[in-house]
């Protein structure tokens, strides 16, 4: 079992050598910076590029109690061919589903390049034993998932048991190692402060996360521009300090193409174009896709679009 090094009080974070300073975040300045970046005016060719990119980095997601193989099949088809009338529209990056539905998604995506991501570790609350979490992780990987979206134990985090949070990430990562990419969901809406978001980001990265991800999408408060900026800055600091590349996934509440463009601009101006690939950046969403498709068609035709012309899957 991995254990965190013992550090003096206040430094419980299991810092591996040369990890960046924990630091702190000024909430007002962070929010102002995020708001300023959101005023970038993205037009014409640069907008088409962004919309196309938004699809390529999309984790098309369905996480409902009512999910069925049929629903997943429909979603997968949509993800592979988002707009059957337009061959230039790329596929999404991945289909994101619950553990029980992984096999269906794997079957449907085979040979397409579209990945399958599975939420695991007692998503969305994370309130179960480590054994259950590890078992679930093993199951989804065995079922063929390319990516595992785990949740951190926010209860442990908020009560200061950082070592426990770290340990769980390390253990899940061990299960994933060499077989699946690990995305660690911080559920930032429950963390209360940006300082905690940064702390959790570094903790997850230290534990071995390939990606850090904002939210489960199950809370009213999901991804926001300041939260993702805070996480991107943590990723940037890690990269500057250690050279290690960690990906970012913004998820929850991103429904409009305009929002997606704002998130992409933020990545562009914080980490640069190098991070704007499906290997390093993802948007987790469901209804976003159709809005992006409508915007693309609007850019191509000059006409504002009607949702009835885009399939609901």
């Amino acid at each position: 079992m991995a254990t965190a090094p013992v550090l003096p009080g206040g430094f419980e974070l299991p810092l591996e050598p040369r990890l960046p300073r924990l630091g702190s975040i000024d909430a007002v300045a962070l929010e102002e910076r995020a708001a300023t970046l959101a005023t970038r005016s993205i037009k014409k060719g640069s907008k088409v590029f962004a919309l196309d990119l938004a699809i390529r980095v999309l984790d098309l997601t369905t996480l409902e109690g009512a999910d069925t193989p049929g629903k997943v099949a429909a979603l997968t088809s949509k993800g592979i061919r988002p707009d059957p009338s337009d061959p230039n529209i790329p596929s999404v990056a991945a289909i994101c589903v619950y553990p029980n539905l992984v096999a269906y998604a794997v079957e449907r995506t085979r040979g397409t390049g579209v990945k399958v991501a599975a939420v695991a570790t007692s998503f969305p609350s994370g309130q179960s034993s480590l054994d259950v979490k590890l078992l679930e992780t093993r199951e989804v990987i065995d079922a063929g998932a390319d990516e595992v979206d785990m949740v951190i134990d926010r209860g442990a985090f908020l009560s200061g048991r950082y070592a426990q949070v770290y340990d769980e990430i390390v253990r899940v990562k061990e299960v994933c190692a060499g077989r699946a990419h690990l995305k660690v969901i911080l559920e930032t809406g429950e963390l209360g402060t940006y300082d905690n978001v940064r702390r959790a980001s570094l903790l997850a990265i230290a534990g071995g996360a390939d990606f850090i991800k904002t939210s489960t999408g199950k809370l009213p408060s999901s991804a926001t521009l300041p939260v993702t900026l805070c996480m991107l800055e943590a990723i940037r600091d890690v990269h500057e300090e250690t050279g290690r590349v960690v990906g970012m996934k913004a998820a929850g509440g991103i429904r409009q193409a305009k929002q997606a463009v704002q998130y992409l601009v933020q990545v562009h101006e914080t980490l640069g174009l190098a991070w704007l690939t499906p290997d390093r950046y993802r948007l987790g969403a469901s209804t976003l896709l159709n809005d992006v498709l409508m915007q693309i068609r609007k850019e191509r035709t000059g006409r504002y679009q009607n949702p009835d012309y885009f399939t609901v899957d």
């Binding site: 037009k43 907008k47 590029f49 790329p90 596929s91």
Partner: peptide, 26 residues
């Protein structure tokens, strides 16, 4: 269907630019 998919994915690869220049927004 598979062919079409590959077309789409090739199109994607060709679309990756080296810089994201914002179009003028005067």
């Amino acid at each position: 269907i598979k062919d079409k998919r590959e077309v789409a994915r090739r199109g994607e690869a060709a679309a990756i630019p080296t810089a994201w220049e914002y179009a003028p927004a005067p």
